[in-house]
Structures are given as C-alpha cells and as structure tokens.
Design a protein around this nucleic acid. Sequence first.
RNA 1: GGCGCGAUAGCAAAGCGGUUAUGCUCUGGAUUGCAAAUCCAGCUAGUCCGGUUCGACUCCGGAUCGCGCCUCCA
Length: 464
Amino acid sequence: MLQIYNTLTRQKEIFKPIHPGKISMYVCGITVYDYCHIGHARTSIAFDVIARFLRSQGWDLNFVHNITDIDDKIIRRANELGEKFDALTKRFIDAMHEDERALGILPPSIEPRATEFIGPIIEIVETLIQKGHAYAAKNGDVYYRVTSFDGYGNLSNKNIDELLAGARIEVDEIKEDARDFVLWKAAKPGEPSWPSPWGEGRPGWHIECSAMAKKCCGDQLDIHGGGADLQFPHHENEIAQSEAANGHSYVNYWMHVAPLRVDGEKMSKSLGNFFTIRDVLEKYHPEVVRFFLITSHYRSPINYSEDSLVEARAGLERFYAALREYVAVPAAELSAISGSQYYAAFVDAMNDDFNTRVALATMYDLVRELNSCEAGSEKATQLASELKALGSILGIFRFDPTEFLQSGAGDQISADEVNALVAERIQAKKDKNYARADEIRKQLTANKIVIEDAKDGTTQWRRE
RNA sequence: GGCGCGAUAGCAAAGCGGUUAUGCUCUGGAUUGCAAAUCCAGCUAGUCCGGUUCGACUCCGGAUCGCGCCUCCA
C-alpha cells in the first residue's frame, strides 16, 4: 500500500488516486538561464526514481515535468550575453537534456514549455479577473489579489496577515496590496512579448505552472512536486491561481524534495556555492553521482562533499563487483520475483514514501546472499537477475560492471598497459616467480589499480 | 520576529515502545603463494534535562545546537 508524505497535511497519507490505477504527477522543472547544478539533479533524480517505481508497480502514470523558458532572469541573462532569449533557452534546454541522459534520468511523459502555453495562461488570467481574484493595473500588469483567496498560506503554513510588511516585499504603488503577485507583466521596449487583452507582455512566474498542469493533467492532480524552496511562494501561488480559477481543489498530494547542501548550507544560485552537473561529472562517474543522490531519503537534506562521493562509489562497487560474474544474465521480470523476500522488502520500502535508503539496504542483503552462493549456480543466477531488476527500478546498474569498475577520473595508466602488466604477472605466477608478480602488483597499486586473482587463475582489476 | 524540520556509533544513513538496519572504515578469523574481493565474527549509538510506561533511540514537555522558508532559487 503506497504512502506519501503530503506537505499540505504534514503527514504520511495512504495514497488514493483520483482515477483508479492512474496517477497524474506534475513536477516543477527549471528556469533555463544557466547550466543545471546538482541540486537540480537531486530533485530530478528523486522524481525519476518515483516515476520508475510507480510504473513498475503497474500505475498508469502521466508524469509532467515542465520547463520555464520565459522569465525575468532569462531576459536579463540574454541581454548580458547579447543573445536572443529563445536562443539562450534552447542552448540550456539542450544542455539540460544532455545532463539528464548522463545521469540516467528518463524523459517525462510530457515536457511542456511555458512559451507554448501563452493562450491557456491568458485564459486563466481572464477567468481570475472575471471572478474578482485579479486586476489589471494601470501600467499593463495584471496582479493576483491575494486577500481574495481564503486558503492562502495553507501549504506553507503562513498567516496572510504576517506576510504584510515583510522585509523583502517591495513597496509598490502599482499594486493594491503589497502581497499581490504578478500574473501578467507588461513588456518594456525590446523585451520578448505576446499580445494579450492587457497589451503586449509575458506571463509572471507562477501562472505558467497552473496553465501547463491544467492542460497536461486536467483541473485536479494526484501529485505535485518540486524542490522544497518552491513551497513558498511558487506552489502557494499556484494553488491560489488554480483553485480560484477552477473553483475546486487543485492537488491531492504535495511532495517536496529537501535541498542539497554544501558544507552544511543549501546550495543555490543565489549563494553562489553551486556545482553544475557537468562540473561534477568531470570528476565522478555519472552513476556514482546518481547513487549518491539516492542514498538518503528525498525529504532529508543531503550534504555534497568529496568524501560522500568517494563513499558512494565504494558502496556502488560492492554491487558491481557482485554483478561482474553475471553480465549475460538479464534483469528478472518483476512478475517472476513476486515471491522473493528481497523484492517484497524493497517494495515495502518504496511504498513507504519512497524510502530509497531502506530499499538499498534490502539490495545489500540480497548481495550478501548472492556472494555466499556458489558462483554461477542456479540460485546465484536467479539472485543476480533479481538484483538487476531492483537496480533498474532505481535507475542504477546501467553500465557494464567491468567498465564501471575500471573507470576512473585520474587515469594515470591506460587499460592496455594494465592488461599487459596483468598478463605478465599471470605468467610470473605460473612460473612461481612471486617476487616479479608482487613487483608488478606494487607498480599497479602505485597507479591506483587493484588486482583481484580468481580461483581459476584469471585476474581481474579495477581502479581504486 | 513568524512558520517548519532535524540531532543516531569513526563517517554516512534508516526503521522501530521490547527482538541484527544497511553501507563505508576498523579489529579478528576463514580463504589466498602473499594480497585483493568474498564469507563469518566483532567493535564503537541515539545532544542534554525532565515526564509517560513494566520497559523509551522511538511517545510527550523543555533546553541547547544546526538547518530550511518568510516574494530570485530545485
């Protein structure tokens, strides 16, 4: 039985779909004005794992992951670089897709872009004005009248009265109320714009998600997710827009992924302490990065550091070392392992608010039994195929084990050189020339190569 | 100031009102020409102070410390 922690009620709830067997899940993607950082990767991987798991359990999932491709920051960045805004966003969307592929993130069912939904955005704004929830200001902007919506603040647990006169709210004579937020922004000369009943302009930040969610999922969603920092104001404002316009509730389960930290502080663009995904992939194997990001629960903060990546690699090596003997074994069909204690424990863990850490623990239990079995035995083969099946639900084990184990950032010595030395050492061992064999191993160790001799006289190696 | 989250062993990180989490590291053993890998065994836990309970790492209250949000953020 699937349980999900709902930000709205601040507790775990038994999941009940709107339509039996179906799930609509809308996840806020990024605003594309720069390369993605690994905080983005954390959120994307969390929902990629969730989507893979839900599908594996037979849910008919409509997974929508949007792109916000028009926004003040995009315009500013394009101006700085002397580039057209849509050329800029295309560049970073392409880069994002590249990063996602590298990390094994599957494409969502739909990847809508804000600029493709200008019509629906205008429709919602018009409805909000008709219903008295929004007003056109004299400068051509349209604002949401926050005090007109009763539930405002419920998601982020804020008292609407206490939002007044906050330090970061700008005094603005255009708005009726300082708390009102913009739905439609009048264009300044030279800015990208679309025609609207209020003149040339562009959507405000939050309205695009209300529009895309409605068009891609319908008026009501099962799950809406995103980074924890989107809870307020972004998701709060989405609720206000969608519920006021549609006249009924918007989302049943709100899910928020905790921030990724660097040195104990949140990594974010505003703090400038961020690493892009490409920075990180230059130093670490993509699957190590992915594995690191699923070793803690999605609602727990996770600290990014050299040490944690090194540790993640060591943990992942244990799996790959076990799978090395079973390259030819295909991943089991889930129906074939339905009776397995490991699969049952894995599913229990994932059904409990997607507890990847506990799911991994069951996989380690499985590996221990696999390693205890006689290599190549029927039981071992079966366990290996089961392990691969569980791994694919988490999106890991995408690489050839030997290739993974022999990969490394600082390749001081080529694979060919290693293979030559290994061959020489095997001969030396046959000749009982252990002095030479040990000398070769010492040389390899100095190059961060670890030698593993098998019983049958063969030798495998991996990079440290 | 308001709202919320957290504190677990050398490190990382989970569940659980009583019974081995798990991974990495470390120690001993098996195995190995010696190693590595693997297996077996073991070592270090629950910030502090109260309360509830037969029993608390787990529930409640308080303190301390850390973190997030409070109109750029995933």
